[in-house]
Simulated scan of single mutants.
Amino acid sequence: MEKKIFKLLKNGTCYIPEFIGKKDILVVQNKIYKIENHIDESVVPDLEIIDCSGKIVCPGLIDQHIHITGGGGEEGPGSRIPEIMLSECLTAGITTAVGVLGADSITRNISGLLAKARALEEEGLNTYIYTGSYRIPTATLTGSVMSDIALIDKIIGVGEIAVSDHRSSHPSLDMLKAVASEARMGGLVGKKAGVVHIHVGDGKKGLEPVIELVANSDFPIEMFVPTHLNRNRTLFFQAIEYAKMGGNIDLTAGETNETGYAVPDALKLLADAGVDMDRVTVSSDANGSIPAKEGCGPGVGRADELINDIRSSILSGKLTVEQALKTVTVNVAKVLKLYPKKGVIRPGSDADILVFGKEDLKLDKVFVNGEQFVNNGKVQKWGRYEEKWHG
């Protein structure tokens, strides 16, 4: 079936992610061309019209922490989690995914991570990756964090470097400074974000290594992105103080209230504490392993936990639509220096668009770079190796 060059999304209630009311959005190939109160359907020939009446229209979600090649492995070869499939991202509203290697840099590597990112891109998803892994010296592709970031198009930073975790290399301040220095220079030379994405575990020091790094170096605090900060309550309150210092903080979707804070509750607490919510992001940790709990084995992080937590934040009344959407769209795009190409709906930005039901916030449609992948909540285009079962 021939793809339409021109698409017109009509009468949607638009959050870009700021609320702008009912608008028409004209998409030309893979870009947003025009946003107006009314766009005449007769102006453009061979136009595909998508009725968004009674729907919410917003930017696609950016997931800055997802194990696209699979996580796990800490309980032996049988615990290695398979690679993620395209449909898992699409049905979660994720239009841009940033892949991480994680703890296992023995049976997995950066070249495999890069290959998977390119495969997902061929299937239609926007993808980036971090070089590196939990431990220092960290896994790389070229032998250098700096060269990886500067020279490899998809590599936008280093991570997830682990601190306060028994699986980390227990890096010293000097070791963290060395990694940060390479990320900083690689970012400058390659015109990339050059972020240091930091896994913070349940260890006794919590966020202290990151705070010490910022306090005892000249690196801009914005280049560090500590994640999993809602995993326990002590760590969460350290995160509040870190955010008030000007730092970026990332929460993990799917967390429960048993030991930490679920995302809707965490976001409300951050807002009530006076944290600058433009510095707050949420990611899925999808395809990563979830520690075993009493009576059951380890679990697997799901991509749709991200959209579920954002939906719950809104439906519970803890956040407005705009506040919740920012944590998975424009805030992430700015941290990763993908803005204004990603994370917003505006003329010239990529046409990564979600359409939700207005009352229940159920995902209705997904467009990635102007191409429709989900309609009426059902996948329209599957990944290459999903077609056998679904195509």
Rank of each mutant, 00 (worst) to 15 (best):
Leu354Met: 10
Thr227Asn: 05
Asn248Lys: 04
Ile152Thr: 15
Arg184Val: 06
Ala193Glu: 01
Val214Phe: 08
Gly370Asn: 10
Ala115Met: 14
Gly157His: 09
Ile249Ala: 03
Thr127Arg: 06
Ile32Leu: 05
Gly157Arg: 02
Gly124Ala: 04
Val332Asp: 06
Trp389Ser: 15
Pro77Gln: 09
Asn331Ser: 04
Ala119Asn: 08
Ile345Trp: 00
Lys22Asn: 14
Glu2His: 11
Ile240Asn: 00
Ala139Asn: 06
Ile155Lys: 03
Ala139Phe: 03
Val179Leu: 12
Gly72Thr: 12
Ile66Gln: 06
Ile211Phe: 00
Glu83Gln: 14
Leu47Arg: 02
Gly102Pro: 09
Tyr261Gln: 02
Ala333Trp: 00
Thr96Pro: 02
Pro220His: 06
Gln323Arg: 10
Met223Asn: 07
Val44Asn: 06
Arg346Asp: 10
Asp360Ala: 09
Gly383Thr: 10
Tyr15Thr: 07
Lys334Cys: 02
Gly143Glu: 09
Lys10Cys: 12
Gly260Ile: 12
Gly260Gln: 05
Leu229Ser: 02
Ser79Phe: 09
Thr95Arg: 11
Leu270Met: 15
Ile307Tyr: 12
Lys362Thr: 14
Gln29Pro: 01
Leu90Cys: 04
Ile156Asn: 01
Ser312Glu: 14
His199Ser: 06
Val214Ser: 10
Lys381Leu: 12
Ile149Gln: 02
Leu120Val: 03
Val225Ser: 07
Gly102Gln: 03
Ile5Cys: 12
Cys296Met: 13
Val321Glu: 03
Ala243Asp: 00
Ser147Cys: 10
Val57Glu: 05
Met185Thr: 08
Pro45Gln: 13
Gly206Gln: 07
Thr131Pro: 09
Leu267Tyr: 03
Ile161Asn: 04
Leu251Ala: 01
Tyr128Phe: 15
Ile155Pro: 00
Ala97Trp: 08
Asn11Val: 07
Trp389Arg: 07
Gly159Glu: 03
Ala253Trp: 04
Ile307Thr: 06
Lys244Ala: 10
Leu47Lys: 01
Ile211Val: 14
Pro77Ala: 12
Leu47Met: 05
Ala253Leu: 11
Lys358Leu: 13
Lys342Phe: 07
Ile68Phe: 10
Val210His: 02
Gly343Trp: 01
Glu294Ala: 14
His38Ala: 10
Asp148Phe: 04
Cys296His: 08
Glu160Ser: 05
Asp276Val: 07
Asn257Lys: 10
Ser349Gln: 07
Val368Ser: 09
Asp46Asn: 15
Val330Glu: 05
Pro298Asn: 07
Asn331Cys: 07
Met85Gln: 13
Tyr242Glu: 00
Asp265Ser: 14
Ile62Arg: 08
Pro340Cys: 13
Val379Gly: 01
Ile290Ala: 05
Ile249Asp: 01
Asp304Cys: 06
Ser147Tyr: 13
Leu336Tyr: 11
Ile353Tyr: 02
